[in-house]
């Protein structure tokens, strides 16, 4: 019993840890500004470089105790503090850290700064201080008020997924906001434009529905053949028939079974002689008006 409880507990803890680790992998470095002279202002009215993280999961993510660092040799440089409700990032949302080297200003103020005019490596480490969740090297070419941002929030791997943004054209600088501003559902728009009459949807969807049920049907044709064969064999075995010599019938008709059943029933339960003994027992019920429900309740109406 103890062993079972221990095993269950170990499985539970293991499951929880792996779930948490799996979820943390959804955290991505999303946009970085190294030098800030005219851009976003922090709660103290000051401008600093900033690092935006994005929760790419479709569930809220608690990020306390992960590490942010600018030094690969020191992966645990800035631990995100425990006990701040704001470290829970809602699904598909962002959180911003100020690279001002002033952690006394609060949870979201890092203990390092980003250096203009040089490459800045930024790493995001798991709570164990060893597992790298995400990293990016921000190029030295980035000038003041420009950001190095993912083309789409939380998507892509490698430097190809990133671009320099200068707040011109559609290259918005978007601190604590989506890198791509979507005001419509892309999928719906695509169908609206390319499948105006719905024929493509009808063909595709019916093909998928048919193939799903066809696969299931084929699978069960196989299983039912095996099942039928097994049933025949076990029936033959029960009757002592050698299946190799005499093939059993393909199936038993329901009508045949019913006829056999009725014949057996008649044979075994023919009621030609009844006992003709009638027993009447007196039924005694202790009655008390205190326990009677007839005054307070009535039967539910039935039609």
């Amino acid at each position: 019993m103890k062993k079972t409880i221990l095993l269950l507990m170990a499985a539970l803890i293991g499951g929880t840890l792996s779930l948490s680790a799996q979820a943390r992998r959804a955290l991505k470095i999303n946009e970085v500004m190294v030098e800030n002279t005219t851009n976003f202002v922090d709660d103290f009215g000051q401008r600093h470089g900033w690092i935006e993280l994005f929760n790419s999961a479709h569930a809220p993510l608690e990020i306390s105790s992960v590490y942010l660092t600018d030094d690969p040799a020191n992966p645990t440089k800035y631990p995100v503090p425990l006990g701040d409700v704001n470290t829970k990032v809602p699904k598909r949302q962002h959180i911003l850290f100020w690279a001002d080297g002033n952690p006394s200003h609060g949870t979201f103020h890092l203990n390092f700064t980003l250096k203009a005019g040089q490459d800045n490596w930024i790493g995001l480490y798991e709570a164990d201080g060893q597992t790298l969740i995400d990293s990016i090297t921000v190029p030295a070419a980035l000038t003041a008020n420009q950001t190095f941002a993912r083309r789409a929030d939380g998507e892509g791997t490698g430097v190809e997924a990133w671009e320099i943004r200068n707040d011109e054209g559609d290259k918005y600088v978007t601190p604590s906001s989506n890198n791509i501003i979507r005001d419509t559902n892309n999928k719906v728009d695509m169908f609206r434009v390319n499948d105006e009459h719905g024929f493509a949807m009808a063909v595709m969807a019916m093909a998928i529905v048919f193939s799903a049920l066809l696969v299931l049907a084929l699978c069960f044709l196989g299983i039912s053949k095996l099942g039928a064969r097994r049933m025949r064999e076990s029936k033959a075995k029960a009757h002592g028939i050698d299946t190799d010599v005499e093939a059993a019938p393909e199936h038993d008709s329901g009508e045949e079974i019913a006829a056999i059943g009725m014949a057996l029933y008649q044979h075994l339960n023919a009621h030609d002689q009844e006992s003709t003994i009638l027993t009447i027992n007196k039924v005694k019920r202790a009655y008390s008006p205190w326990s009677s429900k007839i005054y307070g309740l009535r039967e539910l109406p039935r039609r």
Partner: peptide, 29 residues
């Protein structure tokens, strides 16, 4: 199991109505 295909065929009602709904001006979703 081949009866499953009848269950699939009847779903054409859904996509037939989808085509008519688009013709009446509803958005795809």
């Amino acid at each position: 199991p081949k009866l499953m295909l009848i269950g699939a065929a009847a779903q054409f009602g859904i996509f037939g109505a989808y085509i008519v709904a688009l013709a009446l001006g509803f958005a795809p979703d």
